[in-house]
Write a protein that binds this DNA or RNA. Sequence first.
DNA 1: GGCCAGGACACCA
DNA 2: TGGTGTCATGGC
Length: 220
Amino acid sequence: MDTVAQRLHTLYRKMDDHFGDLRWWPGDTPFEVAVGAILTQNTNWGNVERAIDRLKGEALLTPERMYGLEEERLAELIRPSGYYNVKAKRLRAFLLFLMTSYRGSMDRMFRQETWSLREQLLQVKGIGEETADSILLYGGKQAIFVVDAYTRRILKRAGFIDGNCTYGTIQRLFMDNLPSDHRLYNQYHALLVHTGKHYCRTRPRCAPCPLRCEDDTCSA
DNA sequence: GGCCAGGACACCA
DNA sequence: TGGTGTCATGGC
C-alpha cells in the first residue's frame, strides 16, 4: 500500500509528464497576480483577462492608480469579469490594506512572515483562503499550497478525500506530504487546474486524460 | 436557452 | 457550525 506521499507524487508525475511546465500564474507582476486572484473568484479566466486588459489599456494596473479610482468607475472597468460590483468592493478593500499597511508596495508586503501575512490577508473583506493563498504562492513565491474547486474534484476522484473535507485539511494533505517548495506547489496546483479544465468535466470518460480514470465520475 | 466557471460572505436555524 | 441565497459576465 503506497503512502499518501507516494500517491501524491504519482499523481503529480502523471500530470507533469503529460503537460510539462505550465509556467503559472498568468500575470506580469505580483500586483497583477493579486488583482487576478480576486477577479477570478468563481469566474472563467477568459473573462478575468478581459477585465485585466481593460485596466492595462487605461494604464491603471498599479496600486496607486487603482486606489485613486471611484468604485463605480472601477466596477465598470472590471465588468467583463462578472460580479463586478462585489469585486470592485473587494479590490478596493485589498487596495486600502496594501496602501495603508505597506504604502502600496507588494515587495514590502511580502517581507512579512508567510503565515502572519496570510492572517492579515484573511482579515480583508473579500479575500478568503483560496484567494489569500493564490496571492502568497503565485504573487509572493511563498510555499503555500492553493486549494480550489479543481483540486477538490480531482482529489475526490483519486480517492484522497471524501466530500466533506475542509480547505485546511486538504491544504495540510499536500503540505504535510510534499517538500516545502513554492515551485513544486506552483506547478502542482497549475497541473490540477489544467487537468480539471481540459479533461475532468467531460463524459463519459476522460481518456486521454493523464489521470487515466476508469470510472464514470468525471464531473464529480 | 441552460449550464458552468481557478469564491466569499451574509443570513439563518 | 453548516446549509442556502446572492453576486453576473461570456463561452459553449
